[in-house]
Nucleic acid binder design. Structure first.
Lengths: 248, 248
DNA sequence: GCGTTTTTAATGTCAGACATTTAAAAACGT
DNA sequence: ACGTTTTTAAATGTCTGACATTAAAAACGC
């Protein structure tokens, strides 16, 4: 592992890259201890703070973990799905909020991917998944629920559907798509009638999942996608109207 | 923004979290300049190196970028899809290689998600996407191609298919699923007959995409999934047989 | 008014020190 | 000899202060 002191790039970034590449290439295996900061500083011919900055970069990506004490140091981290989830959600959320991705595009992607889980979820869902879906539907029909709580329950419902597929890789991929939409969904004001329609659709989907009817789940998701797109259009129209009113 | 000096967590991690939360909450908007390192050090009552470690963590996630010089500093970064791609690929690759996810599970997820793009891609693909797919098919049929090059071309083919859907969010989500599989695919040795079959299937998919036949694309992907699963089973069997041979 | 030079404010890097944590080694008492 | 306590050592975490480098703005000269 070598770095180029003449490169315009930060030394800490170069060191981080070198270590990252070694981990990805499998030269450093899980739970293996990296050399101490002092040793690395000597190896790369930089100071300890520079090495530390590099290590912090890797820690931010959950590639390593550090431990203090006599037998401490930096260790290659076995990245878990849960850690990866939260990173993916952070990134996806920012992508959606910063990149002027239209609600329409995000919504289309979300439901298309979710439909990809439909067949597997219909086949493999356990009683637990179904119970979670029913419980969230029940929560959504409670009056007096805030819009945020309604959206959160919506996310929980969809996660149960996705998890029902019994494929952790799909759950990981979908977590970003579903949860990142939440801030966008929160801009929508749900009337009582909107909620009733959504609860009805969720019920239809749960029914289809219960009788292991893949086509029914897909159809239900498609209907829900149209409903969501329509609500978003109304919300945007209402917002624009309010803006115009304010401009007078 | 406050931190707790008594907390067992690293100060730099706490500071990074505080800034990250502010960015996600929209309190800091894109291209806004953060206070200088010295100012932040004073604000949080820590030293400059500690602040720097926090900033490096955020830089590793592409949440901020730094600029040197008189008008320099740390700025909230508009995260681009390309940066997010590479991060997602890194994370996905490590997840697959470290978490004892079976080839079967990863492959199932990949093709399920890819089928989610089929209908959209059949509808929206441009001549460019189709040309890329044809070009990659042609490359794959060249004799003397290494297995790595064959896999790389395979990835390029599938990316063209996914990009054909014209939905950047889906392209982003799928990049991880497709590219992260490459190291796993590279463990397979493709015989000439295997390659011929795959090229044939790619041709079928491209044909379906050309005539905008969504069901045809889905069927082609399903066939390809079965073929891939079968090849992997053979590869694993061959490996295990070799192991047993060596054990004697 | 334009090109050049100087200033300045910021990040990037270094050196050395001390604080804190943790586990292992050593010392100790029974 | 064994179990407990104390000491020690090695590592990360943090601080201070300094200097190097960069790039834009200000000052200057023509």
């Amino acid at each position: 592992m070598k770095i180029d002191p003449q490169s315009p790039a930060d030394l800490s970034a170069q060191i981080a890259s070198a270590i990252r590449d070694a981990i990805i290439a499998g030269e450093l295996i899980v739970d293996q201890r990296l050399p101490s900061e002092a040793e690395m500083a000597e190896h790369f011919d930089v100071s300890r703070p520079t090495v530390r900055e590099a290590l912090k970069r890797l820690a931010a990506q959950s590639l390593i973990r550090t431990q203090r004490g006599a037998t401490g140091g930096a260790f290659v981290n076995r990245i878990r799905f849960e850690e990866a989830y939260s990173q993916q959600i952070t990134t996806s959320t920012l992508l959606l909020s910063m990149n002027t991705v239209s609600f329409e595009t995000a919504c289309e992607a979300r439901y298309a991917l979710e439909r990809a889980c439909a067949a597997l979820s219909a086949k493999r869902r356990t009683a637990d998944h179904l119970a979670t879906m029913r419980a969230e539907i029940h929560r959504q029909s409670q009056p007096g629920l805030t819009d945020e709580a309604f959206c959160a329950s919506d996310v929980a419902f969809h996660r149960a559907l996705v998890d029902g597929a019994g494929n952790p890789v799909m759950s990981y991929q979908l977590a970003g798509a579903v949860e990142a939409m939440q801030p966008l969904m929160n801009m929508i004001t749900f009337t009582a009638r909107d909620r009733a329609r959504i609860v009805q659709m969720h019920g239809d989907i749960a029914d289809a999942v219960e009788r292991r009817d893949a086509a029914g789940v897909e159809a239900g998701l498609t209907a829900l996608e149209h409903e969501t797109q329509q609500l978003a259009l109304n919300a945007i129209a209402a917002r624009d109207a309010a803006k115009e009113q304010a401009a007078r």
